[in-house]
Design a protein around this nucleic acid. Structure first.
Ligand SMILES: [Mn+2]
Ligand SMILES: [Mn+2]
Ligand SMILES: [Zn+2]
Ligand SMILES: [Zn+2]
Lengths: 142, 142
DNA sequence: TCCAAAGTGAGAACGATTATCACTTGGCTC
DNA sequence: GAGCCAAGTGATAATCGTTCTCACTTTGGA
C-alpha cells in the first residue's frame, strides 16, 4: 500500500485541485519515472491539449512544495523530477541513467554527520543521489 | 602540503596555459570558496579587464575536465564550482551555505551500494553534498 | 621562420524558466 | 443561488545563464 503522501489529493496541499492540476498530477504518476517539465507537459497535453506550459511549471512548483514531487537531478540542462515514493520518510534516490526509473534509498549519512561535527561544520541539509542501471535495463542491455 | 592536482599547472591538463587561463585559475584559487562563473569572471576581469566572459566559461569547462574544479551545487540558477581540495581521492563536499567555504568529506556510500545491489540496481555513479555552516560563520552568527 | 591547431573576444543565438496581464474559475459568505 | 475575490489559467514577452559563431591572435612544434 502506498504511503499517504503518494495519494493525489496531497499533491497540492492547501492549493486548489483544478482539472488541469489533476491531469498534470495523474500524468506525473503515469510516467512512473524521472521526467523533465517538458516530458510532463507532453503527457499532460496529450490528455488535455489546452493546458499551457506555464500551468505545468506552476503545478510542478506547487507539488514540489508539498513534497509530492522531488527533484532528482538534471538532464541536458533541464531539472529532473520524480514522484516521491517513500512518504514522509527521509530518504534519497536510486536513478536509472538508462530508463529513468527511480527507487528510494536509505540515508547513509549518520557517520558523515558525526565526522563533520568534529571538523566544526554543522550540517543543516544534504543531498545524495545514486545513478546506475535498474534490473530491467541490465537485462535488456540498454 | 597540497595534493598534486591542486597545483595550477595541472588545471588545464594537456591544454595550453595561456595568460588568460592563468589569470582565471589564480582567481579561482584566490576566491577560496564556492563560486559561480559570474563570481569568477568578476575576479578575473578585475585583474585583466580584457578577458571575455566566453573565455571564462571555456576555462572552467577545461578545468572541470581535468578535475581541478568541481561543481558543488547551484545558487540562484547558476552552477557553483569549487577548486578540488583533495587531489585524486574520491570524496564529496561540505559546503557552507553562508560563506561558501568548501571542505572535502568522506564518502559514506559503501553500505548503500551494497543495499542497492540487493535491489538489483548496479550503481555506476553517485553524488553527495552536505550543506551547513562552517565554524567561522557559526562564530559570527551570519 | 612557418604552419596548423588551439585559444580569444564580441556578439548573436539558444533554451529553460519566470514574469506579466487579461481573463476564468473555485469555493466561501450571505 | 448570487456575489465576491483570491487563486489559477493561458498566451506571450522577458530574463538570464550558457553555448555558438566567426574573424582574429597566439602558441608551440616542425
Ligand atoms: Mn522520493
Ligand atoms: Mn573536491
Ligand atoms: Zn532502467
Ligand atoms: Zn561559512
Amino acid at each position: 500500500m502506498a504511503a499517504i503522501r503518494d495519494d493525489l489529493t496531497y499533491a497540492f496541499g492547501a492549493g486548489r485541485l483544478t482539472p488541469q492540476r489533476q491531469t498534470i498530477a495523474e500524468s506525473a504518476r503515469s510516467l512512473g519515472r524521472a521526467f523533465t517539465i517538458d516530458d510532463l507537459a507532453e503527457e499532460a497535453r496529450y490528455r488535455d491539449p489546452s493546458i499551457g506550459v506555464a500551468t505545468v511549471y506552476r503545478a510542478v512548483s506547487a507539488m514540489e512544495a508539498t513534497g509530492w514531487l522531488e527533484r532528482v537531478g538534471e538532464r541536458a540542462g533541464s531539472v529532473l523530477y520524480a514522484q516521491c515514493g517513500a512518504g514522509d520518510r527521509h530518504h534519497h534516490h536510486l536513478v536509472c541513467t538508462s530508463c529513468g526509473r527511480v527507487e528510494p534509498a536509505e540515508c547513509p549519512l549518520h557517520d558523515v554527520a558525526a565526522h563533520a561535527a568534529t571538523s566544526g561544520f554543522v550540517i543543516t541539509n544534504h543531498e545524495v543521489t545514486l545513478y546506475g542501471l535498474c534490473p530491467a535495463c541490465l537485462a535488456t542491455g540498454s
